[in-house]
């Protein structure tokens, strides 16, 4: 190591000026393969108040479990029209809505050839009051592979449910973020 890392600083209350231009609530354009999913949710602060100035960024593999990135050397099908990046700003009720496709399984922590991870979406959360962004994941309900996912198994069992979306009556997936409190969402360091 030779250079000192730049410190993170909050996005502040005016983050929309910087992030709205590249807001991407529809992650998968028409023609991308895979099961279409709608993910909705809200972000709540420690008082249970909705966070109306938050941003959720998502990063995911395609339905074959392949990331559109040169470091992914898995021999899986790459789709040219799927970047895999999403970004939504929360609305006046603290809510967000993202449409995408369910990602396939990708290689586990030990690299290519290791046990694959359960389908998941990588998430970064930004807002005023966060000096650096929060890192978490969204997993899918009813997924057998969740039981032996290498990352989920690092999470205390009682808190794993905070990372798994719930299927609503209308078929959408619901995933709320609690910054604090009894249902505090699990956040990662990596």
């Amino acid at each position: 190591m030779s250079l000192l890392l730049t410190a993170a600083q909050t996005v502040g209350p005016y983050v929309a000026i910087g992030f709205e231009k590249q807001s991407l609530p529809d992650v998968a354009p028409a023609g991308v393969a895979g099961e279409r999913v709608v993910i909705t949710g809200k972000i709540f602060d420690g008082d249970g108040q909705p966070v109306t100035d938050g941003v959720i960024e998502t990063w995911q593999a395609n339905s074959y479990g392949k990331y559109a990135h040169p470091d992914d050397t898995q021999e899986k099908l790459l789709e040219e029209n799927f970047r895999g990046f999403g970004r939504v700003l929360t609305d006046a009720q603290g809510g967000f809505r993202l449409t995408t496709i369910k990602p396939g399984k990708v290689a586990g922590p030990d690299g290519l050839g290791s046990k694959e991870q359960a389908p998941h979406i990588t998430v970064a959360i930004f807002m005023r009051g966060l000096l650096k962004h929060l890192m978490t994941r969204i997993y899918f309900p009813g997924e057998a592979a969740n039981a032996d996912d290498a990352v989920l198994n690092r999470v205390p069992a009682a808190r794993r449910a905070t990372l798994i979306a719930r299927k609503a009556a209308d078929g959408t997936l619901q995933w709320d973020v609690y910054l604090q409190g009894p249902n505090e969402t699990v956040f990662f360091d990596y």
Binding site: G129, L130, R154, P156, L179, Q180, T185, V186, D189, Y190
Partner: peptide
């Protein structure tokens, strides 16, 4: 009111 209160979970 926005910082997590639980320890971050270390993941690979």
């Amino acid at each position: 009111k926005r910082a997590p209160t639980q320890p971050l979970v270390q993941i690979p």
